[in-house]
Each structure stands twice: as structure tokens, then as C-alpha cells.
Design a protein around this nucleic acid. Structure first.
Lengths: 180, 180
DNA sequence: GACATTTTACCGAACAATCGGTACAGTATA
DNA sequence: TATACTGTACCGATTGTTCGGTAAAATGTC
């Protein structure tokens, strides 16, 4: 098994159980690798596994979601495209956000700076598109932050209420909220 | 030490470290009671501690926040009052939401139904006030859900970004978003 | 009021289980 | 033969929990 395969198999484990909840035996089971093998690929242990997996998911998010914001097209269409790719990325809200997961408990102590930086990147990328429409930089930043908060909150509500409705609704209202 | 005193001292421990992160030795230290003594007040162990503390915080939220929605006054004023009390309850966003904390990892398995029920109560209480303004029940429910998502998301952003700004902004926009 | 009894509050020490992590011998592959 | 990988056994530390017991307060009995 390649390292990337291992990473891919570890993603849902961390996503479902969180950093502290994902025990080594669980990660071993999820990946199909023995503990010794896990330490071969990730000499830094559990924290390195989480770091690498987080990075992998962040890159995936960049490729799947942020990419839609760059390139040609009207801001309206780009934001529409971003919402679609977000629905796919988060599986209609059933997938928790990795950044949020890693902002709790012990994981927060380990990865706080990295998570913060990644989120700021995201905020800025979104704000960038808004300024293209002529919206003032300050307001663009405000709306971008508000939009991300709405999505994050919706992801929590989905998990608690056992319904993807809040997430779908959040995505629906997102373009208007950002552009108007 | 009375049981209520113990509960009060356990609140910040669970809030800061989460369910899984709040170890018995940590809870013992936070409460000032020996581990064995904790089992005197909470024979059900850690899960009972978390359950009782959650219930305590929920009741506090009801007294501090939901209370402002009932009684006399225009819906506008009541919602304004709710925002103020929310700012106090969540300490400008520095306090994480207990429901959200208990919706992660192992805690979710233990308390899912209770958390879900409490959140639904909250959504309905808020929607109820909106219907008083003549807003249709369905739309009121929608907006209530959206508002709570915004607040929840803002609480996450505050923790990641080390700034209370997202929360303050979310509260500012809340009345307009609910009523207009 | 004086004494006996029970209840309450609390703690030190130990429990089995599991945690994250390591050592090492062995197997596969080149 | 050299390197990459893996299964097994093991480690010290910590987890949540329980046991046996103490000191004091409350309660009952006379």
C-alpha cells in the first residue's frame, strides 16, 4: 500500500471520530495497516498522521472548491460553481469540516496556527472574488467571513439534527448573501 | 461542597477541553474534589457529569437568553434583547456552545438525542417570536435555523481566528436577518 | 441533654483496560 | 545482499472506575 492510499483511508477515521477519538488501534483498523506499519509511514506518530491527513484534505478542498473561484467567468457564476463543488466536497453536509474538527481539544493545541492560516487563506480567496464585482475590499472581507460562518454553522446543525436541510439551505442563500 | 457548586466548577472544564479531553484527573483538579468524591455526586461517572453539566448549562441558557423572548414587548425589542443576552452568555464568542461540544466524537454517541431535542426547542422558541410579527410559520422556521447556524459558525470562527470579531458581527446582523 | 446510630461527604489506593509508542525479528522485494 | 515493509510482543503512562475506609454531620432514642 502506498502512503497516499494510507492517507486516504485515514481521512474518514479522523473525520468521524475526531483527533482524540481516533485511537491508534482504530486508525490501524481503518487503514488496514498494523501499528508498526503506520509508524513506518508516519514516524511522528498520531500527530503526524493527523497533520498529513489535514494537509491532504486541505489540498483537496483547494483543488475541488477554491479552483472554481479562479480563472474566467463572471463572479456570479464562479460563486455558483463554488457552491456546487462545496455540496460535493461536504457530501451535502454529511461530511464534517476538517478544519473545524482540528480546532477542538488537543488537536487545537497541536494545529492551531496551521488551521488558522488555512482558514484565513480561504477567507481571502473568497473575498478576492467579491472585490472583482466592485465590492469594496472591507465589505468583501466581511461577507466572506459571514458566508464561511454560515456554512460552518450549517455543518454543525446537519450533524445534530440528522438532516442535510440546513446545509442545503445555507448553500442556496450563499450567492445572494455574498453578492447582494 | 454542594452538588451545584461541583457542577459549576465542572462547566468550564468540559467547555474548554470537550468531553473526551476532560479527563477524570482534570475534572478532579477543576472541581477540587478527589476522583472518588466525584463518584459520590455522579455515580454514573464521567458521562453523568457531562449530562448533568449540560443540563445545567441548558437551563442557564433558557433563563438568560430564551427568557428574553417571552413576555411583553415588540418582537424587534425582544430579539434585540436576546442578542445582548447571547453576547453575555457566550462571553462575546469566547465561550464555546455546549450543544456543539457535546455533538462531537464519543459525546455525540452518548447525548445525541438530548442535544438534538434541546436544539429543536431553541429553534422553535425563536421561530415562535418571529411568527408574532406576522411572518409565516414556515419562513420563521427557516430564518430561525439560519440564525442559529450563523451564531454556531461564528463561535467556531472566533476560536480558530482568535478574534471575537466574527461573533460580534454575527450578532449585529442577526436582528435584520431575522425580521427583514 | 446524652448517647447511639445512620447518613453524608470525602479520600487514598488500587483496579483492569487502553492509550500512544517502541524494539525487534522476520518477510518480501529488488 | 540490501532495503522496504510488517506482525508480534511489549513498554510506561494514563484512562475511567471501584473498593475500603474515615471524619463529621444529621438523626433517632432515651
Amino acid at each position: 500500500m502506498s502512503k497516499e492510499e494510507a492517507i486516504i483511508k485515514l481521512v474518514p477515521a479522523f473525520r468521524q471520530y475526531g483527533y482524540e477519538g481516533a485511537t491508534l488501534s482504530l486508525l490501524s483498523q481503518a487503514s488496514g495497516l498494523g501499528k508498526a506499519s503506520l509508524y513506518h509511514y508516519f514516524p511522528g506518530g498520531k500527530s503526524e498522521m493527523a497533520a498529513v491527513v489535514s494537509e491532504y484534505v486541505s489540498d483537496l478542498f483547494e483543488k475541488m472548491v477554491l479552483k472554481t473561484l479562479q480563472g474566467e467567468g463572471t463572479p456570479e457564476l464562479k460563486i455558483q460553481a463554488m457552491c456546487s463543488s462545496m455540496a460535493e466536497f461536504y457530501k451535502d453536509g454529511k461530511n464534517a469540516c476538517f478544519l473545524a474538527i482540528m480546532s477542538f481539544g488537543e488537536a487545537d493545541k497541536l494545529f492551531h496556527d496551521r488551521v488558522k492560516a488555512r482558514l484565513q487563506e480561504l477567507i481571502q480567496a473568497l473575498a478576492q472574488v467579491l472585490t472583482e464585482t466592485g465590492i469594496k475590499s472591507e465589505i468583501a472581507h466581511k461577507r466572506s467571513l459571514d458566508a464561511i460562518a454560515t456554512v460552518q454553522g450549517a455543518l454543525i446543525l446537519v450533524r445534530i439534527l440528522d438532516s442535510t436541510e440546513p446545509f442545503e439551505r445555507a448553500l442556496e442563500s450563499l450567492p445572494a448573501r455574498l453578492l447582494n
